[in-house]
Design a protein around this nucleic acid. Structure first.
Lengths: 150, 150
DNA sequence: CGATTCTGTGCAATAAAATTGCAATCGACA
DNA sequence: TGTCGATTGCAATTTTATTGCACAGAATCG
């Protein structure tokens, strides 16, 4: 993992639809060398996926929310159960167990409030182990990148 | 935006490195038709980017944290200032203003605690407008997808 | 109801891009 | 300084993307 690899990764994290020739040009390598490096980065798992990102609003899910959750009972198994149930919800795009007063954090992508209500019913109220949950609706997105700084 | 478009978007959100011929096969179209649809989806902005996703641990940023922030003074301009400063930090991958008791939420990708400490110093303590901040370190990631369900 | 337009389709030809073999070069290390 | 292993660039080859074109279906309008 040298300087060129990092440069390549930064470029690919920003826009993976560039042609290999273009990337080669940008990092100052021949196309073949460049391609071999990229392949190596994929095989080693540093690059885990190449995906298309959609504009949330145009995909009909412009509403975002964070939910912090405190569980009633705090065993490892309870946490596992809750996260598993949460992960199965399509509106849940991120689900974590965390340190601190809060036990879990969810990131939601919603179409409307009805969907939110139905989700809360299933996840937090219906025979659940949730003691308290606190919802923060996203008002403004100042930054949202998938790139990991190198 | 018909059924085939949605299918294409789901496929591309999952893996955008597939060849056009493969995608065409999967949605039951000819390669040329398929390509034209994808181009249309890009031009219309539904597909906003195509990016490489890295394995955080292998990229040296395995540590994640959420921070909720309450500001001292609550004007629009104060919020704007804070978010702008936060967004400039490379460790901050997501920055939002939110509804509720909390004013802002940050998502952090960190290499170590020293980086966290330095970030807090810059963002929360150094002549800042932050009244209180609460950090939740991610213990387990149960789900983390970029795909928007369609 | 029929003519017309518009949008989308498949096929085949073309252009562009990725991929590979190979010889040369670079750099670490003895 | 010589040797080994890894990386490079070039050029040939293969694969993939792209485009022109004619046709089919749906919607529009008189």
């Amino acid at each position: 993992m040298d300087k060129i690899d990092r440069k390549l990764l930064n470029l690919l994290q920003d826009d993976a639809s560039r042609t290999n020739a273009e990337l080669a040009e940008l990092v100052g390598l021949s196309p073949s060398s460049c391609l071999r490096r990229i392949r190596r980065l994929k095989e080693s798992g540093v690059i885990s996926h190449v995906v298309a990102l959609l504009a949330p609003a145009k995909a009909g899910r412009g509403m975002k929310a964070f939910v912090t959750i405190e569980l009633e009972r705090h065993g490892e198994q309870y946490m596992r159960d809750f996260l598993e149930r949460a992960a199965q919800e399509t509106a849940v795009t991120q689900a974590y167990s965390v340190s601190g007063q809060t036990d879990a954090v969810l990131m939601l992508r919603l179409t409307d409030m009805d969907e939110f209500d139905a989700l809360c019913e299933r996840l937090f109220r219906e025979r659940s182990n949730v003691a308290r949950y606190y919802t923060m609706f996203v008002i403004r997105t100042a930054k949202e990148v998938t790139a990991i700084p190198l």
